[in-house]
Amino acid sequence: MTWYFAGVDIGSTMTKVVIMSDGGDICSQVIGPTGAEHRRLANRVMQEALDRAKLSFPEISYVVATGYGRLNVPFADSEITELTCHAKGVASLFPEVKTAIDIGGQDAKGLKIKSGKLIDFVMNNKCAAGTGRFLEVTAATLGLRLEDLGTISAKSTHRVKISSTCTIFAQQEIVSRLSEGVAVEDVVAGLHDAIAVRVVGMTRRLKIEPVVVLTGGVAKNTGVVKAVREKIEHEVFVPPNPLLSGAIGGAILGRDIVLGALKEGKPIPKKERALEEVTFFN
């Protein structure tokens, strides 16, 4: 009999769901909008993942919710921080990983991992600089799409140094650089560099050791990956789908909880749950 586990990573903009079997195979993975206001659409993303896996909700033995919106998820059995889940997910893809850097939409994290487990972390969830938000704001100022930033910065020949550490001041700075005639690709490369400086600087508190993995939505930006690689003396790896590490980790942790309970002859610590809209209030 096959057991199924789900990891649901409810981010500020995107919800990621991974359904995994006890053998470790990923049955489906979906990325969809979290939705404004009380994360209402997360359950729809879950439904889509179930449809793709051709499973019904009761067939999922354990659901772990993680991410920004992990609290009060009526269809989860437990909630685990994205720090622990990302570490687990990254370690499943890169078993030798010791340092992971996760740059999300609203925050950035540095993870220290040993034998596949999180042992220390640093986090920035107070300041937009060094997160996806920094790129969102500055890309908007430049009139560019986020998904194009990587290819644009690849054309840069004279990367600009953005000295402002604050997102708001950086906006002003890039406007003045452009008005001086600086090429937009050089400005974008400068922004990538600025984000890399912040994030790598933060992660250095953990003493960066190889294997180093970069994950999170911003890791899809090839320009940022390049800038981070320049700052770290080791090789930096990126998972094929960097948005999914948290959900993968959540599913694995769910599996560990269930198999652990079975091994010890204890009841599975499930909750009464239904696939309903996520709300603020339970």
């Binding site: 685990i80 720090l83 622990t84 999180l118 042992i119 220390d120 972390f121 986090m123």
Partner: peptide, 10 residues
């Protein structure tokens, strides 16, 4: 909250 929770998870 997340920091403290992650510390407890560790």
């Amino acid at each position: 909250r997340t920091r403290i929770q992650a510390f407890l998870e560790i």
